[in-house]
């Protein structure tokens, strides 16, 4: 008998007598009480993200305002190179197709930033030589201060949001939900999903939390709301 058949036989015989099952009770909250799009919802998200020692930058909802905010953040962090999914490169970073010398006079401290649109060919070592990554997001969960990436056009493949040390993530107004169940209902499990709650951290030494281990040590969320 193959290992598969043997294990399945054992499982069948072990649970055989249990009989029918009942659907689990779901008396827990499946949605929040804060109205979608409300400032209370935004405030909760910001408070919870900041609690993890990530930074939140609020900005208006237009593409142009987001571009200014992103460039301002990159400038203030002294970023000289940034990788992003092609859609983000086109939208947020260089709306005029100016991909190489993104000097922006509107942002303080802004220097020349090398913008690398990820075409899937960048290996880990190349990514390790890039300062920051800029992405959009799929969903943000206010109660837990979580942003979720799903490999979509603005989120990119997983490696680009992992290796660079700074992650700048743009959250759009219609992406914010209050609770975990609302978020999961919006996500497609067929996609590669990454739930991010603050910068990388560890509590392995005496259970005291330290931010910054292997993942990006700086997380900046740009919350756009018109």
């Amino acid at each position: 008998m193959s290992a598969r058949d043997e294990v399945l036989r054992r499982v069948r015989e072990a649970v055989g007598s249990t009989g029918g099952t009942t659907p689990p009770p779901r008396a827990y909250r499946t949605s929040g009480d804060l109205p979608a799009g409300s400032s209370e919802l935004d405030d909760l998200l910001v408070e919870r993200i900041e609690d993890y020692r990530a930074t939140v930058q609020r900005t208006g909802g237009s593409d142009e305002e987001i571009v200014v905010a992103v460039r301002s953040v990159l400038g203030s962090l002294g970023v000289t190179s940034v990788v992003c999914p092609p859609a983000v490169a086109a939208h947020f970073l260089a709306p005029n197709g100016d991909q190489e010398s993104g000097i922006d006079s509107r942002a303080e401290n802004a220097g020349p930033v090398r913008i690398v649109a990820d075409d899937g060919s960048l290996d880990a070592d190349t990514l390790d030589g890039i300062d920051a990554v800029v992405t959009g997001s799929a969903v943000a969960i206010a109660e837990t201060g979580t942003i979720v990436l799903d490999g979509g056009p603005t989120c990119g493949r997983r490696a680009i949001t992992l290796v660079p040390d700074i992650h700048v993530c743009v959250v759009r107004p219609d992406q914010v939900v209050q609770t975990v169940p609302e978020a999961l209902a919006r996500l497609d499990p067929a996609r590669p999903l990454t739930f991010i709650s603050g910068p990388s951290a560890t509590s392995d030494i005496e259970l005291s939390r330290v931010e910054g281990v292997h993942g990006p040590r700086t997380l900046v969320v740009i919350l756009a709301r018109s």
Binding site: P189, A190, F195, S197, S200, G215
Partner: peptide, 11 residues
């Protein structure tokens, strides 16, 4: 924690 820093789901 309200949520751990990273959760990965793959299919």
């Amino acid at each position: 924690e309200r949520m751990n820093p990273y959760t990965s789901a793959w299919t």
